[in-house]
């Protein structure tokens, strides 16, 4: 069975994205194990010159490294990914490359009607940078809008159609993970490109 990391894309105490990942963990427990990983205790990335990483960053990086894939659920702040998630990704590509060729599925929940659509596009853009270079599941998007009203008391998604949509996407992700595992040719050069990427003094 695949083992995935569910990365909560915010440092907020209250988050429907966290709730969504918790729902997936429970709902898909027959298909995969999902470990929910928080970013809220990571410090703000400040590009230390000596490239020392906070211990927690290394811990998260190891978890990602060992996982078969990552599910990131992101809210949207100011038409974009929250700074806390951006910072986490900065750390996770600063001299270490756990995301290179890692299968990633993106979901997002928002209180409003747009369901973090712009943040998701932005996140794809970031994950595509040479120092992250994740393998993002293409042509898939899971937007949960009006997320405050979406869950019942047992933290189940109330909307059956939405639940089915998510299930189908998750099944596709399982297939996608398999496919990515066969895409081995570029892996060496991707790693190299990531390692060559310089964070120097921008």
């Amino acid at each position: 069975m695949n083992h995935f990391i569910g990365l909560v894309g915010t440092n907020s105490d209250k988050s429907t994205n966290r709730q969504l990942l918790q729902f997936m963990k429970q709902h898909f427990s027959e298909k995969a194990t999902i470990e929910i990983v928080e970013i809220k205790d990571l410090p703000l990335f400040n590009k230390p010159e000596d490239k020392t990483l906070p211990p927690l960053v290394k811990e998260v990086a190891d978890k990602i490294e060992q996982a078969d894939g990552v599910i990131i659920s992101t809210p949207e702040y100011d038409h974009a990914v929250p700074a806390s998630l951006m910072s986490a990704l900065n750390w996770l590509s600063y001299g270490i490359y756990p995301f290179v060729d890692k299968p990633v599925m993106i979901t997002g929940a928002s209180y409003g009607t747009l369901g973090s659509s712009r943040a998701q596009a932005h996140l794809r853009h970031m994950l595509d940078s040479p120092e992250l270079k994740a393998r993002i599941m293409p042509s898939s998007e899971f937007l949960l809008n009006h997320s405050l009203q979406s869950f019942d008391e047992e933290n189940n998604l109330k909307d059956l159609e939405k639940t089915e949509e998510l299930s189908n996407l998750f099944d596709d992700f399982l297939v996608f993970v398999n496919i990515v595992n066969q895409l081995v040719h570029a892996h060496g050069s991707n790693k190299k490109a990531a390692a060559n990427f310089s964070w120097e003094n921008q």
Partner: peptide, 16 residues
């Protein structure tokens, strides 16, 4: 500057 194809998280945090 540009980090991970986007603005630095520190700047984004300020804007938030």
């Amino acid at each position: 500057p540009e980090h991970n194809h986007t603005i630095p998280s520190g700047l984004k945090s300020v804007l938030e």
